[in-house]
């Protein structure tokens, strides 16, 4: 029974996403509301260019390439890399995972290529630090205090290293934009960073910035599924209150 529900929910999610994608493809507009952190992402690159200082982008220790959050972060990286290429700004990308490193190198290379600046692409700037959590934290922290980036993007899955990085960034006066699906680290980012994308906002940011139809359709589909979730809870509560023996809501 549990498996059937999961399969049905997958089909519903697929149909809703397919439907919104079709609507957008046919010209129907879906307007995303303004999210401060997303607007700041665009401004942060310009700031670094004006100051002549690099941008540091890191996806955190908690994720691997198999995590959807890392994919969303890659989408944002692709846009940020295009802008850094346009503005002739240095982009530094340290990571704890060699597979993420390989993927990020490809993403950034193609972004530089798209804006005709492939000659400025430096693969050495996208590098593996270490697979140890605090080795990674110490390495990135050192990079922050020495290179003094103008803007820091902490977008991905973070664990305890979140505050080490965010506080080091604050100490060098960087504008910091963080976003994570790690619920515990959100509180630290909120306190230490200038802008924070809470959980799902990270996925929305990737749709908003990339302007990609399919990604935008996904964000719209998420809104529709959110309404379905609220409807489920409303019906479930009514059922639990008036028909206490019913248990269909126990998924």
């Amino acid at each position: 029974m549990d498996s059937l529900i999961t399969i049905l929910a997958t089909i519903v999610a697929g149909l809703v996403t397919f439907w919104t994608a079709r609507l957008i493809h046919r010209g129907r507009k879906y307007h995303l509301r303004e999210i401060a952190g997303i607007k700041a992402l665009e401004d942060a690159v310009g700031r670094a260019a004006e100051m002549g200082r690099p941008i540091l982008y890191t996806p955190g220790y908690g994720g691997d390439i198999q995590r959807p959050t890392t994919i969303a972060s890659m989408n944002i990286l692709s846009v940020v890399a295009e802008k850094t290429a346009e503005y002739n700004c240095e982009l530094i990308y340290p990571t704890h995972d060699p597979i993420i490193m390989a993927t990020a190198q490809e993403v950034v290379r193609e972004s530089y290529s798209r804006v005709g600046k492939i000659d400025r692409f430096n693969p050495d700037n996208i590098y593996y630090v270490s697979s140890s959590q605090f080795g990674y934290a110490a390495g990135v922290e050192g990079e922050i205090v020495r290179k003094k980036p103008a803007s820091i993007f902490l977008l991905g899955t973070f664990e305890a290293e979140s505050l080490i990085l965010a506080e080091s960034g604050a100490a060098v006066g960087a504008v910091q934009i963080a976003g994570t699906d790690s619920t515990i680290q959100l509180a630290f980012f909120l306190i230490a960073c200038d802008y924070t994308l809470f959980g799902e906002e990270l996925f929305a940011a990737s749709g908003y910035l990339s302007g990609n139809e399919a990604t935008l359709a996904s964000v719209w589909a998420q809104d529709i599924m959110r309404i379905l979730c609220v409807s489920f809870v409303a019906l479930g509560i009514l059922s639990a209150l008036f028909f206490p023996e019913s248990s269909w809501w126990k998924l």
Binding site: Q66, P68, T103, F232, G236
Partner: peptide, 29 residues
């Protein structure tokens, strides 16, 4: 890379539905 990313997506789909969505909805009711 595609093999790993595809596999990750295939595993995340039911895991996220069950742990992040179904469980939270049921617990609220």
């Amino acid at each position: 890379l595609a093999a790993m990313i595809g596999a990750g997506a295939g595993a995340a789909l039911p895991a996220m539905l069950e742990a992040r969505i179904f469980k939270q909805l049921s617990a609220t009711v």
